[in-house]
Design a protein around this nucleic acid. Structure first.
Length: 851
RNA sequence: GCCCGAGUGGCGGAACGGUAGACGCAGCGGAUUCAAAAUCCGUCGCCGCAAGGCAUGCGAGUUCGAGUCUCGCCUCGGGCACCA
């Protein structure tokens, strides 16, 4: 071979790794383990360049840790259930199962040429009955432990697709797929009791030091802890059983500013009134028509209806407040009822104005007099204000202080109690879909809801289903629903809802430790491998997937499927950026942009043109998307440049947490660099010199590079590691060191490059006489003696500006440095005779002369 | 509205409070070549012939010294959002 030829060397070394079994994870008690995992892909059909970046990062970590002596687990699987498979079946015919497994086969074949150090023997898909059967088994364990329950809940219902939609699937009040107006419907659904863990999930975030601060904050906000007072109003004129109305407030200090009470349209009291009063029924029905999406809520007018019921103010029995039903009160936060304080809450203020209610202020700005308000006065909680209708505290205090004072005062008077509330709701997992994990319960006319027997698991999805009608094919399957009650043996019907696909991805990391086991996990395997030492994936999963997994690990622990040390499943988390590309467009006949793929476009320094010579407008650099056609196919890249070029490119330039822009010019340059390294290795015999002083200089630079590259990989700063490798390659190319020294340096360079470009590394290693495989070699360690420098160049600043520099022996005493600085010609010139007021010598770093 | 984060050359980006712009891309000049490709050498923040001056979104401050720390703005990005 006379040139760098990735098409030849890449398959060759992949075969060598396979033959040596380099990547098979071994449960080796004698060695420390390291579990590195990338978020597993959805088998959409083809791999995307984003996958390449994600898995290359994981591969860099896996290969590095392996060469550091860890027993590494680096598996891959498929998040294989979900709507797209059913949509494909509806649109193109065929079966979701065939579509999914077909896609998996294609994507697996596409991933293999990347040369990832994956233990493929552990691969599974979540739609494998062997996997979802174990998930069903855990569902039953959770049911037994009270971690799962059924309740009626208001959901977004798509009347055309006949399914529940998540909030994010509702766009402008319409179903994202069908375009039909979404209805609010009350359905009985299965829920995981994640809210019971709210406090624990929040507190434990503090201990996840190796998670991005941003993700921890997002989760903390999502969990939404608040401290407040819950108390009951006594009612007058309410139906039987409603003598008291419980409300929750985070601002009990504003209780003296109460002007009304309001309840949710879904509140039991509203339901009781609805049954008797047509006007109430009409109002409540009107409220329900509005969707639950953010947009709908944003636009919806704040409306209320006076129920005629009155409540007594807890601090003044003579003071009566009206009770409204209001469309903006949520039933599932707090108690579903509030008291309104218009003076200090803008929404309550608007409501009071609209319905002619009083607006008594509780506090005023410090130093201000009480006066009618034009809008609500809402100071920061830490701002000091003067309380004019406060109670049991100093007149002037902050809202924060006043809340604590008010809770204590109310508790002392027997008015309610301080409570902590969370915004986190229980996790509704029922989906009216076919392509998901069946919920393993049976509905029996006599026994009610009965868990399926574990020996009957998995409850398999039937294959003979049709998608010619909307809705859930399981509902209309002629026989699948029919079964016998596990309790009494009478004929019964299966649950036809399947589980949210987030359930599948909430425990797959644990399953990788024993993927073929007959139980969800195996104690000795999870004890050895869990938790995941390094998890890598997209920021888009910052909340849902990661929070669900944290809950699931705790639930699994309670059921004996995970050890206590694994209740935080991901010890370290890294969220990588996207791969972006510029966009290309021309104008169509109708003036609308016509998008062009990078393949169709010829890019020059000045601009871009199509093959027919038409000029192309270069648009912004954005995430690759099919609609904008700014997509490059990883398979095309590999065919053209080889996998190592793709891997090196996505690891260089941008820090891994940020977006990286794919450019053809960058890929060309990357391949040139790799070819250069190959050439430098192949030419050592012709190019080696004999100057031994050069040897030492080269090897010192090499050892410095070992330190820097190691730090870069350890610190997830792959771009910096790559920069240091470029730097050393330049040093190497210019060096006249002996062939022996060059051969040694090149072998170590190959090792340092191996996590990013493993195929080239093996080739260079073998060209330079390395023994065995780089993949099995120990990571190089820098020799401290080679890092020591005898002399150091100190910049000299005069009044903070760099004016000169001196090179001195490393350990030269400060007094001696001072003497040399003052004797320096350039310094004398700049001082121009001015007396030196101060001379600062920072040993080994800098000198500053102050005049 | 609430909560975060980020602003550094033409571009991606480096920089324990200590020489701002490592490394890469693009550009420019040159060598080699009949020519090109490939490769190699040099140059590359702005103004200036130079000496030098100005430069890390803007304005203050702390410090011998600030891209980095503090305060106040501006702009962009992200998350949450009828949460009582």
């Amino acid at each position: 071979m006379s040139r760098y030829d990735p098409a030849e060397i890449e398959p060759k070394w992949q075969k060598a790794w396979d033959a040596a079994g380099c990547f098979t994870a071994r449960h080796d008690p004698a060695r420390p383990k390291y579990y590195v995992l990338e978020m597993f892909p959805y088998p959409s059909g083809r791999i995307h360049i984003g996958h390449v970046r994600n898995y290359t990062m994981g591969d860099v970590v896996a290969r590095y840790k392996s060469s550091c002596g860890f027993s590494v687990l680096h598996p891959m699987g498929w998040d294989a259930f979900g709507m797209p498979a059913e949509n494909a079946a509806m649109e193109r015919g065929g079966h979701p199962k065939d579509w999914t497994y077909g896609n998996i086969a294609v994507m697996r074949d596409q991933m293999k040429p990347l040369g990832l150090s994956i233990d493929w023997s552990r691969e599974f898909a979540t739609c494998d009955p062997e996997y979802y059967g174990q998930q069903q088994s855990m569902f039953l364990d959770f049911l037994e432990k009270g971690l799962v329950y059924r309740k009626a809940a208001v959901v977004n219902w798509d009347p055309v697709d006949m399914t529940v939609l998540a909030n994010e699937q509702v766009i402008d009040g319409k179903g994202w797929r069908s375009g039909a107006a979404v209805e609010r419907r009350e359905l009985t659904q299965w829920f995981f009791r994640i809210s019971d863990f709210a406090g624990e999930l929040l507190e434990a975030l503090d201990r996840l030091e190796n998670w991005p601060e941003k993700v921890r904050l997002m989760q903390a906000n999502w969990i939404g802890k608040s401290r407040g007072l819950q108390f009951a109003f006594e009612t007058a004129g309410a139906p039987e059983g409603f003598d008291r109305l419980e409300v929750y407030t985070t601002r009990p200090d504003t209780l003296m500013g109460a002007s009304f009470a309001a309840i949710s349209p879904d509140h039991p009291l509203a339901k009781a009134l609805e049954a008797k009063d047509a006007a109430v029924a009409a109002f409540v029905a009107e409220c329900r028509r509005v969707g639950t999406s953010e947009e709908a809520l944003e636009k919806a007018e704040k409306r209320g209806m006076d129920t005629g019921i009155r409540v007594r103010h807890p601090l003044d029995p003579a003071w009566e407040l009206p009770v409204y039903i209001a469309n903006f009160i949520l039933m599932d936060y707090g108690t579903g009822a509030i008291f309104g304080c218009p003076a200090h809450d803008q929404r309550d203020f608007d409501f009071a104005r609209k319905y002619g209610l009083p607006i008594p202020p509780v506090f005023v700005a410090e130093g201000a007099a009480e006066a009618p308000l034009a809008e609500a006065f809402v100071p920061m909680k830490s701002e000091r204000v003067r309380y004019v209708r406060g109670f049991a505290g100093p007149e002037v205090q902050t809202g924060e202080e006043a809340v604590d004072t008010a809770i204590a005062a109310c508790e002392a008077k027997g008015i309610g109690r301080g409570v902590t509330n969370y915004r986190l709701r229980d996790w509704g997992i029922s989906r009216q879909r076919y392509w998901g994990c069946p919920i393993p319960v049976v509905h029996c006319a006599r026994c009610g809801v009965v868990p399926e027997r574990k020996e009957n698991l998995p409850v398999r999805l039937p294959d003979d289903v049709s998608f010619d009608q909307p809705g859930n094919p399981l509902d209309r399957h002629p026989t699948w629903r029919d079964c016998v009650c596990p309790a009494c043996g009478a004929p019964a019907r299966r649950e036809t809802d399947t589980m949210d696909t987030f359930v599948d991805s909430s425990w797959y990391y644990a399953r990788f430790t024993a993927p073929r086991a007959a139980t969800p996990t195996v104690a000795e395997d999870v004890d050895y491998w869990m938790n995941v030492d390094q998890y890598i994936g997209g920021i888009e999963h910052a909340i849902l997937h990661l929070l669900y997994s944290r809950f699931f690990a705790r639930a699994m622990h309670l059921c004996g499927h995970l050890p206590a040390k694994a209740i935080e499943p991901f010890g370290a988390l890294f969220t990588q950026g996207m791969v972006t590309h510029e966009t290309y467009s021309t104008r169509g006949a109708d003036g609308r942009p016509v998008w062009h793929t990078p393949e169709e476009v010829t890019r020059t320094a000045e601009g871009a043109t199509l093959a027919d010579g038409r000029a192309v407008e270069i648009g912004p650099v954005i995430k690759m998307s099919k609609s904008k056609k700014n997509v490059v196919d990883p398979m095309d890249i590999i065919a053209r440049y080889g996998a190592d070029t793709a891997r090196w490119f996505v690891m260089s330039d941008s820090p891994p947490e940020r977006d990286v822009e794919w450019t053809a010019a960058g890929a060309d340059a990357t391949q040139k660099h790799l070819a250069r390294v190959w050439r430098l290795a192949a030419e050592i015999d012709q190019r080696g010199g004999t100057d031994t002083t050069q040897d030492e200089t080269l090897l010192k630079a090499l050892h410095r590079t070992i330190v820097d590259v190691t730090a870069g990989i350890e610190g997830f700063a792959f771009n910096k590691a790559v920069a240091k490798l470029y730097e050393f390659t330049n040093t190497f190319a210019k060096s006249d060191a002996s062939a022996a020294a060059k051969r040694l340096a090149m072998r170590v360079l190959a090792q340092l490059m191996s996590p990013m470009v493993p195929h080239l590394a093996e080739e260079v290693w073998s060209l330079t006489g390395g023994e065995g495989l780089v993949a099995e070699a120990r990571w190089p360690v820098a020799d401290p003696a080679m890092l020591a420098e005898d002399s150091v160049t100190l910049p000299i600043q005069i009044n903070g500006k760099r004016r000169a520099e001196i090179t001195v022996a490393k350990d030269l005493p400060a007094a001696e440095v001072e003497r040399m600085v003052l004797a320096d010609e350039a310094v004398i010139r700049f001082l121009a005779g001015q007396p030196v007021r101060k001379l600062i010598v920072v040993p080994g770093r800098i000198v500053n002369v102050v005049v």
